[in-house]
Each structure stands twice: as structure tokens, then as C-alpha cells.
Amino acid sequence: MLLVPSLPAAAIVNGVPDDGEHPYVGQLLYYVPDAVDSRFDDPGGWFTCTGTLLDETTVLTAGHCVYGIGTDGEPTTLPDGALSSTGGTDVWINFLEAPDYSALPPSSTFVPDGNDERYDAWSAVLDADPDWRSATAYHHPEYDDGNFVLHDLGVLVLDEPAPDYATSDGFGVLPEVGLLDRLARVKGRTYEPVGYGLEESGPLTASGGDTRRKATQKLVNLNGVFGYGKGTSAKFSNNQGTNTTGGTCSGDSGGPVLAGDTSHVIVAVTSFGINPTCTGSDGAYRVDQADDLAWLATFGVTAP
């Protein structure tokens, strides 16, 4: 039903149901007017990601999950196309463990030249459903969609506060500077990604998705990827094994990688997959860097 990007992105593979453990983690549904959906003659694509409430109005996600989000169905990209303006409003987030998409008319209803009508119909349904909360999207000012492994952070500011999704310990928590470097020294330590992505992905198959799940991962290294050094991305194991249950896949992008199975501290956000089968390892963008935490502080959220 949705056009979901395969890369960048990632989803919980071989994990387990979240079972209410992280009510502050929700699923984004958003519209990018410039995106191509091959089923339609005119542009416009719908996508899903994952995000984490840091307080009653602020959601942390990935930069590539908010880049190019439209406003009232119109593009927000700048005329030269080099950067996207911030402040797109065609984004909604749902904190149910299994969001209900049944009220959205099937895309096939609008193929091939009714993409604008699809936007009108879907946005009207989402606006009328209290479980889908509207927001304004912002990407990190240094985010580059052509090189998303750098500064892959985004923020949603909800139109209305959402106080009901905290645990007894509160919402998701930002890390101290350099926390992941210190945790990496602990041999055998595990981490917990949470998201709404696919449970299995392959060249011709895909299954699951749109349900909040969690997994247990081990940190592979902090060496960075694609020629970029330490301080940007972290690589986590995406295989089942001793003390691990799997990893992430398409649709988990922007979801939190927590410091442990009882922790609410976000050390990274799921950013990209190493391969399309969601096995081996995957990449997450580190949140525990001084410049990123400084940008998040402009939204009024800081580490305790």
C-alpha cells in the first residue's frame, strides 16, 4: 500500500514484539511531493519511518526520513534542488503498536493520474484520526540527502502535545557526549533497536512491517562507513546469535538504538542497511556527538 524506500532504511529482523515496552516509539507516515512512484504519471510518494518522543512534543528520527516532506501537498525543495527547506508539514506519527491503515483508500484507486487526489484523500483521513498526530519536520542543517550517512538526524515538532506515551521512566532519553565510545569498551554488551520495519527482506520477498518490534544486537565497531571515520556511524550485527535476536530492515529508519534492553537512552538512530536482505550488519547514526546534541538542544531537548 505504501511506497517504502529500501535503502537508506532499515527494519526489525528476527526480533520480537515490543509488547508495550516502548510506547514513546511511533511510526511516521509522510508525503514527499518530488518523489517518484512508478505507478503514477505525476510525482509524489508516501513513505514510512520510525521516531522517538523525547518530550511531549519533540520526536527524534533520521534526517532522510524528513528530507523533502511537503506542505499541503506542495514541494518544499529549494529551486536549485541542492537543499530542502525545513518545515514540511505533510507528516503524521502514530504511537500504537500496530497502526491502522485500513481507512486509507488503496493506491490502485488513483492509478495512474490521480496522485493529487490520493494525497487529498489520505491527508484528510490522517487529519481526522486522533491516533495519527500531525507535525512539522526539520532535518539537521548540515544533512545532505546525497550523502545521508553524515548528520542523518531529523526532528518532528508535534502540533499538539502527546503526554500519554511515556513510560514510568519518561520518554526516550538523549545520551551524554561520547557515551557510545565508553559503552563500546564493555565486552559482550548488547543494544536494543526498536522500529516498525520489515521482518524479512530479499530480492523477491518481503514480509511483516507496520508493527512495533524490538531486537537485541551487538556493536560491531565504531569505525564509520564508506570512508568516513569515527564519530558518525556505528555498525551493529544484524544476525541471530548468542545473546542476539537480529537487527533492522526497511522501515526502521529513524528508530532508536537503545543503550540496553532496560534502557531508554538513545545512542543512535537506525540509518541505513548494508545489504538489501537485512542480514550481516547495519548502520546507525550516532546521536552522542557534541554538534548533534547542540542542534537538538535548539528544540529544548537535552541529555539529563
Rank of each mutant, 00 (worst) to 15 (best):
D152R: 07
D152Y: 05
D152H: 05
D152V: 11
D152G: 08
L153E: 02
L153G: 00
L153P: 00
L153W: 04
L153H: 11
L153Q: 05
G154A: 03
G154P: 00
G154T: 04
G154V: 03
G154Q: 02
V155L: 11
V155I: 15
V155H: 09
V155Y: 07
V155A: 10
L156A: 05
L156Q: 05
L156E: 05
L156D: 06
V157H: 02
V157C: 01
L158F: 06
L158W: 05
L158Q: 06
L158D: 11
D159F: 01
E160I: 01
E160P: 00
E160H: 03
E160Q: 11
E160V: 10
E160F: 01
P161A: 10
P161T: 07
P161D: 12
P161Y: 08
P161N: 09
P161M: 09
A162D: 13
A162W: 00
A162S: 09
P163M: 07
P163C: 04
P163E: 08
P163I: 06
D164E: 15
D164A: 14
D164L: 09
D164P: 00
D164W: 02
Y165N: 06
Y165E: 06
Y165W: 03
Y165C: 01
Y165K: 01
Y165H: 12
A166Q: 11
A166T: 08
A166W: 03
A166G: 09
A166M: 05
T167R: 10
T167H: 07
T167V: 09
T167Y: 03
T167F: 04
T167Q: 08
S168C: 00
S168R: 10
S168G: 09
S168K: 10
S168F: 01
D169E: 13
G170L: 05
G170R: 09
G170M: 06
G170E: 06
G170F: 04
F171K: 03
F171S: 04
F171W: 07
F171V: 02
F171D: 02
F171N: 02
F171R: 02
G172L: 12
G172T: 13
G172C: 12
G172S: 11
G172R: 12
G172M: 11
V173N: 05
V173E: 15
V173M: 14
L174F: 09
L174K: 08
L174S: 06
L174R: 06
L174I: 14
P175S: 10
P175F: 02
P175W: 02
P175A: 08
P175D: 06
P175C: 07
P175H: 06
E176L: 12
E176S: 14
E176R: 14
E176I: 12
E176Q: 14
E176D: 15
E176G: 12
E176H: 10
V177K: 11
V177I: 14
V177N: 11
G178A: 11
G178T: 08
G178P: 04
L179R: 14
L179A: 14
L180T: 15
L180K: 07
L180Y: 04
D181S: 14
D181Y: 07
D181G: 14
D181K: 13
D181F: 04
D181T: 14
R182P: 00
L183E: 13
L183S: 08
A184T: 06
A184Y: 04
A184E: 07
R185D: 15
R185Y: 01
V186T: 15
K187P: 04
K187Y: 13
K187G: 07
K187A: 15
K187F: 12
K187S: 15
K187M: 13
G188P: 08
G188F: 10
G188V: 11
G188C: 11
G188Y: 10
G188T: 10
